[in-house]
């Protein structure tokens, strides 16, 4: 265990977040167990007011949780010099492989938490609380994930022993490296680039189609494409675009670009990617809910905004990753 201010902040912050979410989930469960919207009793009114408490708590908690991902990445980046052979955040993760699990759990929260908030917003807008049960069941699941996250974070940092010799990102994300990470990095860049741009074009085309037509199938296709876009983009950022960003044919680490040396370019990249995927994914998830009368109007209204946001985010993301390819003058297609 390393006593480091960032680690302390993560553990203290996440513990508070967990307490908030547990409390919210507890209140939420009590609310939906005795929920009876047709009753005009005082108890029902109290329950309705409690939904605001749950919303308020969970929204703050989830905002902190999302913020904690950035803090986590910055922290593992800051402590990498404690490990022999580690040159960036990847090294810190390799020093205790649970770190990778933490990263994936946090990414899951990053996508799941906003879904909860959107459900919550609709539930409040509808006026007859059609999603109350769905919302609080999902909250229970989220609580488990947040608890798991804290547990893994503690386990990860507790299991870090600074004397461990780690392979740095050069070894992990270089073509000859073993495992999935190495394979991703080894993907041929020309092919990867093709796949990337084709996916983007398909995604944007479907998005346009959804904007113009109300077909349900298009929404589901878009959701699937959004998931594809997510994985294809991450793979191509690691395998191809990173080389242009670092201007090195052998450097593929996805964490270095969070640093000031690369003008924090990772933030627009991953923020753009996450918004594009998230808002592209939403219409598909909410398609079945259009059957609820009190929601239909609101969903149609919001859907337009989601599609437009997703489109803009996609364009932003694609522009930022393509920029160095077009303008850096580095010729790396051969690698």
């Amino acid at each position: 265990m390393i006593l480091h201010p960032g680690i302390l902040a993560l553990i203290v912050g996440s513990s508070i977040v967990l307490m908030m979410v547990i409390y919210g989930s507890f209140v939420g469960t009590r609310v939906w167990l005795s929920w009876d919207f047709n009753s005009s009793s005082e108890e029902q009114l109290v329950l309705e007011r409690k939904t605001f408490l749950v919303s308020s708590i969970v929204r703050y908690a989830l905002a902190f949780e999302v913020f904690s991902i950035l803090l986590f990445i910055s922290t593992i980046d800051d402590i990498h010099q404690l490990f022999v052979g580690a040159m960036c955040a990847t090294g810190s993760l390799n020093a205790n492989p649970i770190g990778w699990v933490v990263l994936f759990v946090k990414m899951g929260i990053l996508l799941l938490a906003p879904v909860w908030v959107v459900l919550d917003i609709f539930d409040q807008k509808a006026g007859d609380y059609p999603l109350i049960r769905a919302k609080y069941v999902l909250l229970q699941f989220l609580t488990v994930v947040v608890a798991l996250d804290l547990f893994l974070v503690i386990k990860y940092f507790a299991g870090l022993h600074p004397e461990i010799i780690t392979s740095c990102c050069g070894a992990l994300f270089s073509e000859s490296g073993p495992g999935v990470a190495g394979e991703i990095a080894a993907l041929p860049s020309a092919g990867m680039m093709w796949l990337f741009y084709v996916t983007v074009v398909f995604f944007l085309a479907t998005l346009m189609f959804c904007l113009l037509h109300r077909a349900a199938a298009a929404r589901y296709v878009l959701a699937v494409l959004a998931v594809m876009l997510f994985f294809v983009s991450i793979a191509s950022v690691i395998s191809t675009f990173s080389m242009y960003i670092y201007q090195l044919p052998t450097h593929h680490c996805p964490f270095d670009m969070f640093q000031g040396n690369y003008s924090y370019v990772a933030y627009p990249i991953f923020l753009g990617l996450f918004s594009a995927v998230f808002f592209g994914f939403l219409p598909g998830i909410f398609q079945p809910l259009k059957k609820v009368t009190s929601l239909e109007k609101h969903i149609f209204e919001a859907e337009k905004k989601w599609l437009v946001t997703s489109g803009i985010a996609t364009i932003l993301f694609v522009t930022v990753v393509s920029w160095p390819v077009v303008f850096s003058g580095v010729e790396l297609m051969g690698y």
Partner: peptide, 8 residues
């Protein structure tokens, strides 16, 4: 209006 949520 007898059965509306407080917000509405």
């Amino acid at each position: 209006v007898a059965k509306l949520s407080e917000s509405l």
